[in-house]
């Protein structure tokens, strides 16, 4: 768990503080996403957690311990850091870049080598091809993936990820996000993730922290923020497709009617959806088949009916709550 208490940071020569009286908690094993426009202080917040920047005011605790009492290099070896500008060491191979922290920690050579290959596989860079290349031989997106692998190498309990997928194309980004979420299911790291892409934040985050001009504007789960944006800034950040984002976030099982009679429902696959799919996928099915009901299944067993009326009622309900 990471706690920031009344953190302020003002850079010399800049009138407005980069971070202003910020207090927040990052839960253990959860992904907290920091979202906000350029210059709102996201990077500065991450860099205060690993002490690359020291706050002017306030205290930061990791697992209850004040980080000012820890030796900065030792602290940083326990915190994976994916840098916004990537920052691979140009004179080292990709393999050597990834093994940086294990090397500092004195891991045995074979263990490090195994880990390097595993991480290259995971980030979709075949080790045979990439391990002995140099950073200048990579594309921006490949370099960024190496940056993620390097941060993960020593298996740190905490990860600071500063726009880690910004430079990859949308298809690979989606793949990396999915892979990232899948891996996180197992490794359960405490993650601070920075992005200015609200859709990415909603998809990835267990908890969102919305920032503007160094201040916390709103924080909560993605669905809380989508359904109850606290002011116009948050609303405009979420955008006009709030409804569709919500439907992307709720699963079919959340809106279906489990009591509805299932008997006379057509058996074809076109009108069936899986319980864990987002409601948006069910809507697409309805539109394609020109129906207003689909059957929701769990492992092939019918579980309920999802109807257009049910979805509409939900949208009306959350819009009503907003006013």
């Amino acid at each position: 768990m990471i706690q920031l208490e009344h953190i302020s940071k003002r850079f010399s020569g800049v009138a407005r503080p980069a971070v202003d009286q910020l207090s927040l908690t990052v839960e253990k094993g959860k992904i907290s996403v920091f979202v906000g426009p350029s210059g709102c202080g996201k990077t500065t917040i991450l860099r205060m957690i690993n002490r690359l920047v020291e706050p002017d005011e306030g205290t930061i605790f990791i697992d209850g311990k004040n980080i000012l009492q820890m030796n900065p290099p030792l602290l940083r070896r326990t915190i994976g850091y994916v840098i916004q500008q990537v920052g691979l060491l140009p004179h080292r191979t990709i393999g050597q870049n990834i093994s940086l922290v294990p090397e500092l920690l004195g891991w045995p050579r074979e263990k490090t080598a195994r880990k390097v290959r595993e991480l290259l596989e995971m980030t979709g860079l075949p080790p045979e091809e990439f391990e002995s290349k140099y950073p200048y031989q990579l594309s921006g997106g490949q370099a960024q993936r190496v940056g993620v692998a390097r941060a993960l190498a020593a298996d740190p309990p905490i990860m600071l990820m500063d726009e880690p997928f910004a430079a990859v194309d949308p298809i690979i980004r989606m793949h990396l996000q999915d892979e990232f979420l899948r891996v996180q299911q197992h490794i359960r790291k405490t993650i601070c993730f920075v992005t200015h892409d609200i859709s990415e934040a909603i998809k990835i985050g267990d908890h969102l922290v919305i920032l503007n001009e160094g201040r916390l504007v709103q924080s909560g789960t993605p669905i809380e923020i989508l359904t109850h944006p606290s002011n116009d800034f948050v609303s405009s950040l979420i955008g006009d497709d709030r409804g569709s984002k919500i439907l992307d976030l709720i699963r079919c099982e959340g809106l279906m009617d489990p009591q509805a009679p299932l008997v006379d429902f057509p058996k074809d696959n076109g009108s069936r959806v899986q319980a864990v799919w987002p409601v948006k996928a069910a809507l697409e099915r309805m539109m394609k088949n020109n129906t207003d009901e689909v059957m929701v299944c769990r492992e092939d067993q019918p579980a309920g009916i999802l109807s257009w009326n049910g979805i509409k009622a939900h949208i009306n309900r959350i819009s009503g709550e907003k006013q």
Partner: peptide, 25 residues
């Protein structure tokens, strides 16, 4: 480059490590 120095520090190199293993090479 500042980002390289920064990355080296951020990974937990000591300032002496950064000098000998990054800046001088």
């Amino acid at each position: 480059p500042e980002d390289v120095r920064d990355a080296a520090l951020g990974m937990g190199m000591t300032p002496v490590d950064v000098l000998l293993r990054v800046e001088l090479p």
